[in-house]
Computed example of a mutant assay.
Amino acid sequence: MMAADLEVNGVSWAPTKSGQPVLHPTTFSVAAERVLGVVGPNGAGKSTLLRLLYRFQQPKTGHVRVDGQDIWSMSARDAARRIAAVLQEQASAFGLTVREIVRLGRTPHRSGFAASGAGDEKVVERVLDTLSLHPLAHRDFGTLSGGERQRVMVARALAQEPQVLILDEPTNHLDVRHQLEVVSLIRSLGLTIVVSLHDLNVAAGVCDDVLVLKDGHSQGFGPPQTLLTNALVSNTFRVDARREHLAPSGASHFSFTLPN
């Protein structure tokens, strides 16, 4: 898998041609192997933006390019070879095993109804090994814990051998240990990653850059250390935010209170 540059130029989206935009024109870029966090309150447009990035919805305006090529100028199959997504909603596995779920990620690389070949199985084995899923390979997906399921869905995405990986709230509904596991995994993949997160402290710790959205408008884009000021965070989330620097590591942590 080779990571790619992701360029997003002026993308917007509305439910109808004449409807009010859910996402207003937004521009940013993510260099290969960097991690971009998308943050903002509920209804900010985070999931809408991600749907444009993994070609589920076509932008009303603007372009999404992977290594300079517009994703809507390629076939859906070719786009799926370049971009993979892990969503919050996990469909029923219908009794499939972990290995069978991961094998589904090879679909964009097969022709028609062709069965998996030796090359596909090598990729599946490598991904199972990368995510330490071999002990679970024959387990029914429905019997797994939330954290285990999230790892399997990431594995399925990696089996697509994408250049860009989109993650929609990957730590949502996970306990602290599994949140830490997912965060560690994100940093280790070596892909170009766009991840929506609801926890600013997680975003600041795992992301190279952050895009802040509010009411479908970009509030800023840049490194979290400089972009996430008390004023911007307070205004975006309608709280009183205070950034505290922790000794001796020097790491920072946001605390929040309701405004008077």
Rank of each mutant, 00 (worst) to 15 (best):
N201I: 06
P25E: 15
K60Q: 15
H217P: 00
I166G: 03
V202T: 10
M2I: 08
K214P: 04
A14K: 12
R55V: 05
S234R: 00
G222I: 10
H253E: 11
A204I: 07
L185F: 04
S92Q: 10
E169M: 01
A137G: 07
S111P: 00
L52V: 05
H245L: 13
P248S: 09
G205C: 04
L6Q: 00
P59T: 11
A4Y: 13
I71D: 05
A76N: 06
R34G: 08
G112Q: 07
T61Q: 15
L53D: 00
T171S: 08
A4K: 13
L6W: 05
N9F: 11
A251F: 01
A91Q: 06
K17W: 01
P59G: 14
G105E: 07
V22S: 09
D129T: 13
Q57G: 00
Y54G: 02
A3P: 11
F237Y: 15
T61L: 13
L167W: 01
G105K: 01
T192E: 08
A14F: 05
S132D: 11
L167C: 03
I186G: 05
I193V: 14
V35K: 12
A93S: 14
A31T: 02
H198F: 00
D209F: 02
L185W: 02
S111F: 01
P224R: 02
W72N: 12
T130F: 08
N260P: 15
G216H: 02
G142T: 07
L133D: 09
Q219D: 02
G95M: 06
L213T: 12
V206N: 04
D67E: 06
L246S: 03
F254S: 12
D5E: 06
N172P: 09
P15H: 10
F254Q: 10
V66L: 03
V102A: 13
L158T: 07
P162H: 05
G220M: 01
V195K: 10
T229G: 09
V212G: 01
D70A: 12
V11W: 01
K46W: 04
G43N: 11
L136C: 07
K60P: 01
A31G: 05
N230D: 15
F254R: 14
D209T: 09
V38W: 03
A91T: 11
R110H: 09
V102G: 10
L52N: 13
A85D: 03
P224A: 06
E121T: 10
R65K: 15
L49G: 06
S145F: 00
N172R: 08
E33S: 13
R77C: 04
Q160S: 01
T26E: 10
A203S: 04
R187I: 09
S132Y: 05
S184F: 08
A80E: 03
G43Y: 06
T27R: 04
R82L: 06
G119L: 10
A247F: 14
R81I: 02
S196T: 11
G40I: 14
V182S: 00
K122R: 14
H245S: 14
S184Q: 15
T171R: 05
Q225E: 13
A155R: 13
R139L: 09
R103S: 14
S249T: 12
M74T: 08
L165Y: 10
V66A: 07
I166M: 10
V35Y: 14
G222R: 02
Q69K: 14
D199Q: 01
E7P: 03
L52Q: 12
S145I: 05
E161T: 09
R34E: 12
T236R: 08
G222N: 05
